[in-house]
Design a protein around this nucleic acid. Structure first.
Length: 422
RNA sequence: GGAGAGGUGGCUGAGUGGUCGAAAGCGCUCCCCUGCUAAGGGAGUAUACCCCUAACGGGGUAUCGAGGGUUCGAAUCCCUCCCUCUCCGCCA
């Protein structure tokens, strides 16, 4: 969420950001300012009343200590009416607080100046393209290859769990494991600390990274225990340091984590869901950065370059999109999507999305640092996939298939697979 | 799952109704002294919010696991929840 003080001082900027993100009705900005005004006046009133009764209570204590019981009794009688008023104001205040934060949660992060203004994916900017995309007729989509080889078992996955929960069999399971190891090893060489994170999180954590209240429906829930199955490792990893205060020399902090991810993907039916394109459970290595506010711009670029380097090493043609304001999401200030070429489907598949959240997430979870002057300030957070497996697997199958029906193993994965061929 | 103990500031730890935001020690920061080092002396050292101030700064409120309650007054009493530790049970 944004800082109320920031909204107060930059109302127009915030409204413009909302409009550019596709929300023409920005009246919530004015309402939050109003609510905050009201909240502050109640706080002042309440604080004064409390100060008064604290003073009296102290006095009573003193009198009691001196054995002046009667005087004390007299004072006690006087304090009665304050008490009710305080209680009343306390209730009013917590009501206002709730209303204010409900409004605050509806205001999206402000896009960075460098982000192109637009309202749909058509307005995204192709930032760069790498590699030669092949278009040969003979190339099959990955699901055909996988089916012929018996590598992915969608049917049994449906039987055991449901649609979107496939089994990976034999060489395919090995390939997944190879990719995970490759990604994690690369990340740790680049200074990312590897984390193994919980796969379930509580409500506070889901709120911290912004899944709640915005994207509640994407998550699977474990109602009995109040848990959510993580839709991405971003959630547990970013929350790792929730409510903590860093000192400057601890920054920046880089984490990598492999986890399965669960997404309900409610309402997404149609041709996009074929094969590995969209699953309810998939594997991903996620990268999270916690950085000084001044450096988050550069950190986003290096995060993007790192994710791109993985695709280069796998020799998979890709392109990088700079997402426009309308297609970038509620919590980001700036976002790049990496899309790998799928030669069997003749289309691009999103395999990574690298985002800068500015202070938006960090404020929600009170992630702070002490600056040179010893003042605490909110940090910036970023994350990016490095990378998401299923579509990489799809692209590998389609890119590395041979005309006679085999699939070769990308050079960098051969040590992990002990083989040149799947 | 059963029984018990406990959760206090960066850490250790005192505090069982009144001037306690909290003793003491450690750590850390700054200063002084000591010709280096060691030792010593002094000051400071939580977070959030509100108000005043151009700013330096000042005033106030809240927070002793969380939430609620009793009371003029709660770290201290009561209730609920969470977490940690010990023992037992179960178990990869």
């Amino acid at each position: 969420m944004l800082d109320v003080a920031f909204i107060r001082e930059n109302a127009d900027l915030v409204k413009e950001g909302m409009k550019n993100k596709g929300e023409p009705d920005s009246s919530v900005v004015d309402r939050v300012i109003e609510k905050d005004e009201e909240w502050r006046s109640v706080v002042t009133e309440l604080d004064n009343l409390r100060a008064e009764s604290n003073k009296k209570a102290k006095k009573i204590g003193q009198l009691m200590g001196q054995g002046k019981k009667e005087e004390a009794q007299k004072l006690i009688k006087e304090t009665g009416d304050n008490k009710e008023k305080i209680k009343e104001l306390e209730d009013k205040l917590s009501g206002l607080e709730k209303e204010r934060s409900d409004l605050l949660y509806q205001i999206p992060n402000v896009p960075d100046k460098s982000v192109p203004v637009g309202h749909s994916e058509e307005d995204n900017e192709v930032y760069l393209t790498w590699g030669e995309t092949s278009e040969e007729e003979w190339r099959k989509p990955h699901w055909e290859i996988a089916e012929k080889k018996g590598w992915i078992d969608f049917e049994r996955g449906s039987k055991v769990t449901g649609a979107g929960f496939p089994f990976y069999v034999g060489a395919m399971a090995r390939l997944q494991r190879a990719l995970i190891n490759f990604f994690l090893n690369e990340a740790s060489e680049k200074g990312y600390t590897e984390l193994q994170a919980p796969y379930f999180v509580n409500e506070d954590s889901a709120r911290g990274t912004g899944q709640i209240p915005d994207k509640e429906d994407m998550m699977y829930t474990i109602p009995r225990d109040g848990f959510f199955a993580i839709p991405t490792a971003e959630v547990p990893v970013t929350n790792f340091h929730r409510d903590e205060i860093f000192s400057m020399e601890d920054l920046p902090v880089y984490y990598s984590a492999y986890t399965p991810c669960w997404r309900r993907e409610a309402g997404s039916y149609g041709k996009d869901v074929r094969g590995l394109n969209r699953l309810h459970q998939f594997d991903k290595v996620e990268l999270v950065k916690i950085v000084h506010p001044d450096s988050s711009d550069e950190e986003l670029e290096s995060l993007r370059e790192y994710a791109e380097s993985l695709l280069k090493k796998l020799e998979l043609p890709y392109r990088t999109l700079l997402m426009c304001t309308g297609d970038m999401g509620f919590t980001q200030t700036k976002k790049y999507d990496l899309e790998v070429w799928s030669p069997g489907q003749h289309r691009w598949l999103e395999v990574s999305s690298c985002s800068n959240f500015g202070s938006f997430q960090a404020r929600r979870m009170q992630l702070r640092y002490k600056n040179e002057k010893g003042k605490t300030e909110i940090l910036h957070t970023l994350n990016g996939s490095g990378l998401a497996l299923p579509r990489i697997v799809a692209s590998i199958l389609e890119t590395y298939q041979t005309e006679d029906g085999d699939v070769l193993v990308p050079d960098v994965l051969q040590p992990y697979m002990n083989s040149e061929k799947m």
